[in-house]
């Protein structure tokens, strides 16, 4: 802060004396002015790049804009069309399937791995790097590798493996029931590394004295986990739950790349809301309709995030 004040003096000293900015205002005002000058850039940038388009989406969702003709106001027609569209409800169901199964499974896995990895001394860094690797890989590249893993027998690794043990072949991506879990597994795997790192940081932040005291008092491992580790890890957990939920609600890369020939298929059983928005906007050019879908997604994200923060709030 003091550095900024000095800057003010520096800038002012070069100017003609008397009646300048430097003399007319108090130190406090000057300081504020400088703070806002520096803040103006990001604020302006975000207003133009983020907030304005976000707000404009609400306006566009009430129009029939198709990029070609100027948008015409049509009231809530896009929304009534959306809610009457059976495809939308399928997509809605899919999106929540990704969320409801994806978030708990990924958090359970990452916590378990972090919990035990924390105790491993041998090769700790190497194992941690292995878990983190998928997070560094491009989602599209990973999706394509998995897509080939899931193929039928002659080229699909998993089906070859099943065949080797005499187990029946699975259709995976060609099935209306298995496709969504198959894609979700890859998304969970991709995000695991990040969650493990965050959980481990959380675990390391818990003072060892708590554990020592508990052990002296004769608490078992399970009780220590339940009474000390989990409660003290809560801020980390809340952070990850919210982040992972938003991630699953916005899932796109994996689905799109694993089903490019029949996007979101078969029969729309893997299509998330974001893919539907993408198709409405950039394949059918129904910008107004796509905007209505983004508004719905925005509201879902908002409600879910607020709900989670409220449920997981600190009750003390």
């Amino acid at each position: 802060m003091s550095l900024q004040v000095e800057n003010t003096n520096g800038a002012a000293s070069g100017r003609p004396k008397g009646g300048g900015f430097a003399d007319r205002f108090s130190m406090h005002t000057k300081r504020l002015a400088w703070i806002w000058t520096f803040l103006a850039l990001p604020v302006l940038f975000y207003s133009v790049i983020r907030f304005y388009p976000t707000l404009d989406a609400f306006r566009l969702s009430l129009t029939d804009w198709n990029l070609m003709r100027p948008p015409k106001f049509i009231g809530f027609e896009n929304y009534t069309k959306l809610f009457a569209d059976p495809d939308f409800w399928q997509v809605f169901k899919n999106t929540f399937a990704y969320l409801i199964f994806g978030t708990p499974i990924s958090l359970f896995l990452s916590f378990t791995i972090a919990f035990f990895l924390d105790r491993v001394r041998f090769g700790h860094g190497f194992i941690r790097a292995l878990y983190f690797m998928p997070f560094l890989t491009t989602a599209a590249a990973m999706a394509w590798v998995w897509r080939w893993f899931y193929q039928p027998a002659p080229i699909g690794l998993i089906n070859d493996f099943l065949a080797y043990f005499g187990l029946p072949q699975q259709p995976f991506l060609r099935s209306t029931t298995q496709a969504l879990p198959s894609i979700m597994v890859t998304a969970i795997w991709a995000g695991l590394g990040f969650q493990i790192i965050i959980f481990m940081a959380g675990l390391r932040a818990i003072p060892t004295t708590f554990y020592e005291a508990a052990r002296i008092d004769g608490l078992g491992e399970w009780a220590i986990l339940r009474r000390i580790t989990l409660p003290l890890l809560k801020p980390t957990t809340v952070f990850l739950v919210v982040l992972s939920s938003i991630g699953f609600l916005r899932i796109f890369d994996q689905v799109y790349n694993m089903t490019t020939n029949d996007p979101g298929g078969p029969l729309g059983t893997t299509k998330p809301l974001v893919l539907m928005i993408y198709q409405s906007a950039f394949s059918s050019y129904q910008m107004g309709y796509a905007a209505a879908q983004t508004v719905v997604l925005f509201l879902i994200l908002l409600v879910i995030s607020l709900l989670q923060l409220w449920i997981l709030r600190d009750k003390s």
Binding site: R147, Q151, P152, P154, I155, P171, L173, R174, N261
Partner: peptide
């Protein structure tokens, strides 16, 4: 033939 055979 089989839809999805070798992906494409």
């Amino acid at each position: 033939g089989q839809a999805g055979f070798m992906d494409e």
